[in-house]
Design a protein around this nucleic acid. Sequence first.
DNA 1: GTAAGTGCAAAGTGTTTGCATTTCC
DNA 2: GGAAATGCAAACACTTTGCACTTAC
Lengths: 165, 165
Amino acid sequence: MATPSTSPAEITKLRTRFEEYARKHGLKSTSQRDAIVDQFLRSSGHVSIDDLLAKVRKRAPKVGYATVYRTMKLLTDSGIAAARQFGDGQTRYEVMGEGHGHHDHLICVQCGLILEFENDTIEQLQDEMADRLGGFKLVRHKLELYGLCPKAAGQKNGYCPNESS
Amino acid sequence: MATPSTSPAEITKLRTRFEEYARKHGLKSTSQRDAIVDQFLRSSGHVSIDDLLAKVRKRAPKVGYATVYRTMKLLTDSGIAAARQFGDGQTRYEVMGEGHGHHDHLICVQCGLILEFENDTIEQLQDEMADRLGGFKLVRHKLELYGLCPKAAGQKNGYCPNESS
DNA sequence: GTAAGTGCAAAGTGTTTGCATTTCC
DNA sequence: GGAAATGCAAACACTTTGCACTTAC
């Protein structure tokens, strides 16, 4: 339940959803775009533009940054991707499949591991808080927890065994 | 209790704290730095570099961005300022006086009004959550609520009466 | 054929840094 | 006089845009 990768069935569904969006908006299908969308959908977790481009270029070496940015904008606009900022300077994107609705993040400050979670009680308290502060109606929120995962906490420093490539 | 401005007494205390920090680190006192620190301490709320520089330049017209950035870094390092990112691209700074410790933010998406709040129950639930997700030890967190303040919610759209210059 | 998409390089952000010059102690 | 600070402009990292060329339909 941590950083779920999208199931094949779900990927198909999302791809179809994008095709509909594309048709509705008069977008053409190109090999570059298809490669990016495909690669994005099968990425699990929180992909950066660099990550994504690197993977895409294995298949289609000439794809440029601009195309990736433009495609991610389309995916975001169509609700298939969500852009996230975790303070490391670069935007990361996650797949917004069904059964992957709203959630918050827990990030290991040592190894960069990102877990996702949901907590209804917290959400409810947020609504109450906003109301108590003068009748605000919340439209969204951002909750990020930064901590040490148990493995990182056990290390002297620097290296974290949860680290992955 | 919302976006408090710092009391004169507190400002004096903070200025002294910075002087100590400066002495300890072999920093020299310059008119530019003094002007920036002074202006920052009397700013209430969440100042951007641009805001701050604009105000500083009324007194000392030749101050450059670099100096403001460098000074804000000193203030942050000395614990007198805290840097915040509210997703509008620019870093904002707030004064970290006594009686102005940890807190979270509630932001009106219409008029940009920023309120501060604290909620121990939420904090506690966060710790529990982190522990439950595999024994994480939290070192910090970020909670931002985005909503409509009641005045903004009442308007048709666009203009918000809470807006201030 | 023409609208849409691509790649590149240039332009835009906000921020940091190198360096010659000035300032403080 | 020498370390530290300044201002400027250049460098940065990330992202967006302009434009000539290519591609899909």
